[in-house]
Structures are given as structure tokens and as C-alpha cells.
Design a protein around this nucleic acid. Sequence first.
DNA 1: GCACATTATTGGACGCGGTCTAATAACTAT
DNA 2: ATAGTTATTAGACCGCGTCCAATAATGTGC
Lengths: 200, 200
Amino acid sequence: MNDQPQQVGRPRRSSKRILEEAAAELFLEQTYARTTVDDIAQRAGVSRNTFFNYFGSKSDVLWVDFDETIERLSVELEASGPANPVMDAVGDAIVRVAASHPDDRVPWALTQVDLMGTRDDLEASGLRRFMKQAEVIRLFLSSRTAVDDGLQPQAVAFAVLGAAAAAAGVWASAGIGRRPLADYVAEAVDPVCAGFAARR
Amino acid sequence: MNDQPQQVGRPRRSSKRILEEAAAELFLEQTYARTTVDDIAQRAGVSRNTFFNYFGSKSDVLWVDFDETIERLSVELEASGPANPVMDAVGDAIVRVAASHPDDRVPWALTQVDLMGTRDDLEASGLRRFMKQAEVIRLFLSSRTAVDDGLQPQAVAFAVLGAAAAAAGVWASAGIGRRPLADYVAEAVDPVCAGFAARR
DNA sequence: GCACATTATTGGACGCGGTCTAATAACTAT
DNA sequence: ATAGTTATTAGACCGCGTCCAATAATGTGC
């Protein structure tokens, strides 16, 4: 017996996952740049307008796994006890989020750069996510430190996420023999956290 | 007497500066989002197509000062002697570039965020510049270190530029009494360089 | 069964950024 | 006067993102 209350209204015909799979097929066949939203929607069996009921923009289809993984960052930050040094808390939380990402879900857009046909959309949509998580980290830091001069929480957030982004990119392009994502992220993020921790 | 050889061909009717000024007027009058490329071109006295002879995209008009300033980064990096520790070289170069930016040229888009009407274009166009300079730094680091494992140069580049970007944003929003840009940039960038330097 | 409310889907249209083609214009050199 | 060079322009097109209104597919209550 399903304990979810039965939903009224018209049932959904698709899902983010279905649209993502349709998109991935088309991107392999004809690149991201040459694939239109209409193409993706038709392949998934819905109308073009309906695509925008599931995704805010065409490029959002590239981030379904990432968006699920990154939801954990604020949870991991809050899980850090107040006794934990704040920079360690930030670094550890980011590494744990990276560790929680399924090893087999390497983002297609990062490994098949040639098949994208452009970097602008990927990078712009990635940046929207970066800015959102930077705000999460900045608020966490501001709440854990007495001094909120505006600059240091922002600099920490941008620098540490920048390092993590670099690690993710290198990890994705490392090929089949790549080590776990968390290894790369730790190696990139630890020096940044150490540098800011020493400065406090 | 002008020692520049006289240019053949049709003379230019406008310039990046003229278009930038026209754009700034319109952005103040009706926000960036509500201003079209056609608006800017007409205000500057040229056609819509001609705008694209001067700028690659609408948002490029926001970065004229920055684009002139950032040209110095590769020069400042090369000016660093081989005796200088590599992380110091990177940090110092970035701070010198920041110091060379005219104090009175605070980017309008950063101080008048409300009058932009959107952040997406500003951030996306900023990221294109970020990625370009990250590559400059990554190549510099790769050429100055024996080990090029791919990850560290990239992590350093992303982290240090991320910190600098955070500093620039905080500096811009600091108001009339703001300190020089180089102060903010140094404060943000130094811990990152120290962290990576200690790790070598 | 039917009416109603709710949620999703759809068609069509529009504005805008970006791009393309081809014609025209404004210069210099000969 | 003509040819070559560079810039400008008009018009068109594509695709993304958005909007409006109509339609559809459900569940609920009577």
C-alpha cells in the first residue's frame, strides 16, 4: 500500500531523468550545440513547452546528477560540530559531498567536451550552481565566526569552491583509471583551507 | 604629424568606448535587462549589426575597463624572476594587476547591481574571462614546476582567481570609502598562495 | 455519472541575442 | 576613373526563453 496521498490533477508524462536520457542520446548523435530543446522534447515524447516545466534552461539538463549530489552540502556543513575548526568543517564537508557522488556517474558534459560543441552553456550553468553553493558556504562561515567583514567568508567560499571545481574537471578528464572524486577534491581543497586556517 | 600609417578602407564610425558610454546611459535609464543591443547601437549612432563588429556579445560591453586591465596579467607573471617562489609570483602578479586598475574606474555593473536587472549575463561573461586567465596562470605554473600532474596548477589557478574575484566583488560594493582594490585582492589571495606554497 | 477543482500539457506567438548573406559606402592607391 | 580594402548596413533566419489561453487527465464530492 502506498502511503503517499494520491495526487490530484493531470499526471506527469515525463521526468527529469527521461529528458536527460533523451538529451544524452541526441548530444552523442549531433552534439549539445546542434541539439535543440525541441529535439530533446520530441525524443522524450513531450512538447517543447513541457521541457521548460522540468528544466529552467536547456543547459540544466547537464546537471541532474550534480544537482542531486550538491543538495547535501548544506546538510554536511550543519553536521559539523561546533568544536570542529571552521575551515576543517568546510573542507571536510566538500570532500564528503564529493565522496557521496556515485563513482559511475561521471558527467557526460565533462568527459565528452568535444561532443558539446560549445563550453559557454556548460560553464554559465555551472557558475549559477557555484554561486548558489558559495552563498551556502559564506552564510555558514559568517554564522561560525565573530568577525563578518564581508571579504573573508566570500574569499574562502570562492577559493575553496574554485579548487573543488578544478578538481572535478581534472577528475572527469582523467579517464577510466581515475581515482575517486573525493581524492582529487581533497588534494585541491586542503591547501586552500590550510592557508585560510593559518591566517585566522 | 601622425606617424601611424594611414589606414585604407572605410573608416570606423564608432569605438568600444563610445558604445560603452551609450550602453551605460541606457542601463541607468532602463536597466541592462531592458536595454536591447539595438537600443545601444542606435544611441551610439550605428546599426545593430555593427555593434557585433565591436563586441562579441551584449554583455562584453560591461568589461571594457577590466579587459584593458587584465591584459597585464601575463606580462606581470613573466616579469617575475625565476628566483621568486612560484606561488609568490602568482599572488604578487595578481595584486600588481589589481593595483594597476584605475581607482576611479569602479565597474558600474558591480556597484549598480539593482540596475542590471539580471546577474546571469554579468556572471557568465565574467566567467569567460576567468577561464581565460585561469589558463594563463595554469600554463605559467606548469612551466615553472617540474611536476605537471594536471590537478595542482588547475586548482591553484581556480582557487586564486576565485579569491581575487570575491575580493573584486566586495571592493566594488564597499562604497565611497573603499580601500584600494589591491588591498582587498591581497587579503583574499595571500592565504590561498600560502596554503599551496606550504604544500609543495 | 456528473460537476468541479487541480495539475499538467500543448499550440501558437513573441522578443531578443547571435549569426549569416549580400549589397553598399567610404576610404586609399594607382 | 578604377580597383582594392575595410566598415557599415538591411534583411533574414535560428534558437532560447517566455507568455497566454485552450485543452487534457486526473481525483473529489455529491
